[in-house]
């Protein structure tokens, strides 16, 4: 029984990181209907910027802040130079541009020494808390807390600020939002900026929890797919719920199923099986808006 609780707790921790990663992904899809295959690379870029700064002797918190600011602007630049040209193009071209972007970012990261080695942030996050048979390291607790803060911040932003409300308006009905004077371009840029920022946050938290390697960080970009499909592609709440469910599924699988399967590693593949089932049974996910097609 204590194993079950331990796995559930670990699942929630992983799930929080997935939720944070999926948040940016959903923001982009929600406002501009673009599937971003470069999200994992954004996560990695943010994490590596912070690593580069801390290795130069800067305070970790300060460099985290700088990294998030830089990825914020990276998002704006990406939207301005690449995605804005693709408005109205067929879906496959848009997908492919983000794949190309992922490749370019990969290449740029390989030009630094960080991409081909394993690193960790030079900060001390030791000690752990245990209660009721569950033990969580302080890095894990920090991951949950930071995710909650970020999600709270974004929720506040969407519900209270003018820009947040106009983002919701654009995702609801682009034409109508345009006609009342909302700048759709500004909203798209902001969506990418927010995605960049939250991606960097996810990268930082993941880096604190389990170290920095390009494969591990960029791999999150693929893992968000089960999360967002389960939660619904255009739902922020769905990203959170989906993230936590997928995190729990992953941890339960590696806790209970790995012993049954030679070679193990079921945690990596089961989310994708969940994805396929969700697509067949309930394609728009738990909280997604159903697409209605008119001929």
């Amino acid at each position: 029984m204590s194993l079950l609780f331990q796995l559930l707790a670990a699942g929630v921790v992983t799930g929080c990181i997935y939720a944070l990663a999926a948040l940016g992904f959903v923001l982009i899809y929600k406002s501009s209907r673009v599937i971003n295959f470069a999200h994992g690379q954004l996560i990695a870029v943010g994490a590596f910027i912070a690593l580069a700064l801390t290795q130069r002797g800067l305070n970790f918190w300060l460099s985290a802040l700088i990294a998030m600011t830089l990825t914020f602007f990276l998002g704006v630049v990406i939207e301005r130079f690449f995605l804005r040209r693709m408005v109205g193009q067929p879906i496959i071209s848009v997908i492919m541009v983000t794949i190309g972007l992922a490749s370019v970012l990969d290449g740029l990261m390989y030009l630094t020494p960080y991409a081909s080695s394993n690193n960790s942030y030079p900060v001390n996050f030791t000690g752990s808390i245990s209660f009721a048979g569950i033990s969580l390291s302080s890095a894990e607790l920090f991951a949950v807390a930071a995710t909650l803060i970020f999600l709270g911040g974004f929720t506040y932003f969407f519900n209270k600020s003018t820009m947040g409300v106009s983002m919701r308006a654009v995702s609801d009905d682009q034409m109508a939002a345009m006609s009342v004077g909302t700048s759709v371009q500004r909203v798209f840029a902001l969506a990418w900026a927010a995605a960049g920022l939250s991606a960097a946050a996810a990268g930082l938290i993941l880096g604190l929890k389990s170290g920095l390697s390009l494969a591990g960080l960029a791999g999150i970009g693929l893992k968000v797919f089960p999360v967002v499909i389960l939660g619904g592609l255009d739902s922020v709440l769905g990203a959170v719920v989906g993230g936590i469910i997928i995190g729990i599924v992953e941890n339960l699988a590696s806790g209970y199923l790995d012993t049954l399967v030679p070679g193990g590693g079921t945690g990596a593949v089961l989310p994708f099986a969940v994805l396929l089932v969700v697509l067949l049974v309930k394609p728009y996910g738990l909280f997604g808006t159903k697409e209605i097609e008119r001929v």
Partner: peptide, 13 residues
């Protein structure tokens, strides 16, 4: 990856 990605993006744009 850098040249591959650039090639795709430039072609598409």
């Amino acid at each position: 990856p850098l040249s591959f990605g650039l090639a795709i993006m430039l072609f598409l744009m």
